[in-house]
Design a protein around this nucleic acid. Structure first.
Length: 415
DNA sequence: TCTGGGGTCCTAGGACCC
DNA sequence: TCTGGGGTCCTAGGACCC
């Protein structure tokens, strides 16, 4: 049995944890640079606020309905995520944290009562972290996702749904839109509608091999999973990433080389950390910078850097950045975004050493570097040529305090 | 006044080589 | 008269997710 546990509108709910005054109000959270709306709490959802629309287009509408608007407070969300995952992890030894607010659980034994277990998890997370979560149990990962959808969005489930056989799946799948099925987006759902399918149940009734011909093997697997056949093994669900990116748009456009260098080095730091966490090494790294695609003329420079010996060392990656900086920088271009992408990864366990070239990595330094940052907070140590506090760091006009990670922001209780 | 996220995976098609 | 291979690597862009 699989379970998927995730928070209801995680970012918006996280904003309500330490600010009870907004718990009963409509709340939305914006993406980096206050660009788009990325989280809508259930109360705000009733106002039909679309996700991932640019904020400036909805600004007036939100103000008219007294919607509370917050910038993304990643420090807060990351910390609340850790706490939430810890509580959930107590209920299953086999937990896979799938995203900042989702974790899959795999149970090998039979629980006496899945529904009761789901209620316990919900209650524990609410009691200890004050975050509302939905719990979906299913005999395949895709059905666990579907049950989770039902738990949070369908009438009568109140946060927990269980699909342990096709009889339990039926009412849920019949109420699910095609695009609500895991792996089916807006494009594919439109194509499926054209051949007469209207909901998840209709999709489950299709011949899997025909669906493979119609679209892809991925769709075939989805159909099989909806019918209770496990196609996404646990190993597949928690597979290593094949690419690792770190990119960000600037709060203010930059036109000088040193700012671009600092920004790219910040991404070098993040990429290195992600690589080491996964135990991977990067062989090929794409390094890019561009202005806005909405500008009159889109100007993009990118460079593919190949390491002779694959690396996960932040300083080695930073050196690669320095070596191509002159090729990326174009005078008088107001750069809007830049980033790095590790697009060819090698396993850290089976390094192909070169006969003539020695690795520049200093694993011991990186180990201590990571230890310090994990103990005292990310950013305690950093490479000198990166600086995220500069003028181009992101706009966050509606930022809430970092209640749990900064002494100065500690919540106060009035007695 | 101006404003438009970030991450991952996959594939079509162009460039280049022999 | 008209036609013309196959492999590798990279880039751009689409699709999906949150």
């Amino acid at each position: 049995m699989f379970a998927l546990v995730d928070a209801v509108a995680f970012y918006a709910s996280a904003e309500k944890v330490f600010d009870p005054s907004i718990r009963n109000k409509p709340v939305v959270v914006l993406t980096n640079n206050d660009g788009c709306i990325c989280a809508v709490c259930p109360i705000a959802r009733e106002l039909n606020i679309p996700k991932f629309e640019p904020y400036f287009k909805l600004k007036n509408y939100l103000a008219k309905h007294n919607v509370i608007v917050r910038s993304s407070n990643y420090e807060l969300y990351a910390d609340l995520s850790d706490r939430m995952m810890n509580v959930i992890g107590r209920y299953c030894s086999n937990q896979h944290v799938y995203s900042i607010d989702e974790s899959f659980l795999q149970f090998n034994s039979q629980a006496p009562d899945w529904f009761k277990l789901g209620q316990e998890i919900r209650l524990a997370v609410w009691r200890e972290v004050k975050l509302p979560v939905g719990v979906g149990f299913g005999i395949t990962p895709t059905l666990a996702k579907a049950a989770n959808h039902a738990a949070k969005k369908l009438y009568g489930y109140n946060g927990v749904a269980v699909i342990s056989d096709s009889k339990q799946a039926l009412p849920i799948l019949k109420q699910m839109k095609l695009a609500d099925v895991w792996g089916i987006g807006s494009r594919l759902s439109k194509r499926l509608e054209l051949i007469g399918l209207n909901n998840a149940y209709d999709l489950a009734q299709q011949d899997p091999s025909k669906m493979r011909k119609f679209h892809s093997i991925v769709l075939e697997k989805t159909v099989r999973e909806l019918n209770g056949e496990v196609c996404l093994s646990w190993d597949e669900v928690k597979q290593d990433k094949k690419e690792i990116f770190s990119t960000r748009s600037f709060g203010t456009r930059i036109t000088d080389k040193s700012s671009l260098h600092a920004a790219l080095n910040t991404h070098a730091d993040i990429i290195g950390r992600k690589l080491r966490k996964q135990g991977s090494l990067v062989k090929k790294l794409t390094i890019f910078a561009h202005n806005s695609p909405h500008d009159a003329q889109f100007i993009k420079r990118s460079f593919l850097y190949e390491f002779i010996v694959p690396t996960s060392d932040t300083s080695v990656i930073a050196n690669a950045v320095s070596s191509v900086l002159d090729k990326l920088f174009v005078a008088n271009v107001p750069f809007y975004k830049c980033g790095l992408g590790a697009i060819e990864l090698h396993s850290g366990n089976f390094t192909q050493f070169s006969l003539f070239d020695k690795s520049q990595d200093k694993p011991e330094v990186m180990r201590i570097y990571d230890q310090i940052n994990s103990k005292y907070g990310t950013g305690t140590t950093f490479i000198a040529s990166s600086n995220m506090t500069e003028k181009w760091s992101m706009r966050r006009a509606f930022l809430s305090p970092q209640y749990t990670t900064r002494w100065a922001h500690l919540p106060e209780i009035n007695c």
